[in-house]
């Protein structure tokens, strides 16, 4: 992978970092040369995989949440049981969920996506539902007064007014997914968790790789958060003062 292997012989166990600069030999926190050399083969693919994993999980999670929220909105009695199921899933630590799925779906990206989707449901579903239910009754009354059908009321009144709550849920879900997706590497070398796990499973934690991959994860989360905030502003021009 990145040329890490144990030194042979009986000496102290020091990772051999290939062409060892002084920085790498002393295991400094951030060796620019290593990041530069390994960007193309390690960090960039990991970053792209991480983005793909996040988009997949949040996309699927959003679609499922949307359908569930509409169902729970129409049939109120289904709200509590659906909420309880997503609550239950959220209480299982991600590391356990990833491992428990391996026998079922194998060492595949599917195994990584399912738990991530489950966690996004916990955040997105209640937010969509709360947004839809939060529309003031006066507004619904005037929509009815204007002769809107139920379907028109949903698409043209209730849904647009729920956008801020929906977007807030989407932001939280995206940022948490980016962070939780690093744990997925416990089952499969995929995404930014790959280099992170590789770094911490060295006898002496490989600091540069850990800091580089961890830093990229945080940067990705902040970037996604900013982009979604901008998207929310664009979608709700009537809500600028927030």
């Amino acid at each position: 992978m990145s040329g890490l292997r144990l030194a042979d012989g009986g000496g102290p166990v020091i990772p051999d970092f290939g062409h060892g600069t002084a920085c790498l030999r002393d295991n400094h926190w951030f060796c620019t040369s290593w990041v530069h050399e390994h960007w193309g083969e390690t960090l960039q693919p990991a970053l792209l995989q991480h983005i793909y994993l996040t988009l997949l999980a949040v996309g699927i999670g959003f679609a499922i949440s949307f359908v569930l929220a509409i169902i729970a909105f129409r049939f109120r009695f289904l709200g509590p049981p659906l909420g309880a199921v997503s609550d239950f899933l959220y209480c299982i630590p991600s590391i356990a969920l990833f491992l428990l799925l391996v026998p079922v779906t194998g060492l595949t990206v599917t195994t990584l996506v399912i738990p991530l989707v489950a966690y996004t449901l916990f955040v997105i579903y209640p937010n969509i539902l709360a947004g839809l239910r939060g529309v003031p009754p006066e507004v619904l009354e005037s929509a009815r007064g204007m002769g809107f059908t139920r379907r028109q009321t949903f698409w043209r009144v209730e849904l647009p007014l729920a956008v801020p709550a929906i977007m807030a849920g989407l932001r939280v879900a995206t940022v948490s997914t980016i962070s939780i997706a690093t744990i997925a590497a416990v089952v499969l070398y995929y995404g930014l968790g790959g280099p992170i796990f590789e770094a911490i499973s060295q006898p002496d934690i490989f600091r540069t790789e850990l800091v580089a991959a961890g830093g990229l994860t945080i940067l990705l989360a902040l970037t996604a958060d900013t982009l979604l905030t901008l998207l929310q502003r664009a979608l709700t021009p009537w809500n600028r003062q927030r």
Binding site: V172, V175, S176, I178, S179, T182, I183, L192, G193, I196, F197, A199, I200, I205, R207, L210, V211, A213, G214, T217, I218, A221, L222, D225
Partner: peptide, 15 residues
């Protein structure tokens, strides 16, 4: 709290 990848943070602390 949400953005911090817990596994990287724990790794940094241990290192």
């Amino acid at each position: 709290g949400r953005a911090l990848p817990s596994i990287a943070l724990i790794g940094i602390f241990i290192a």
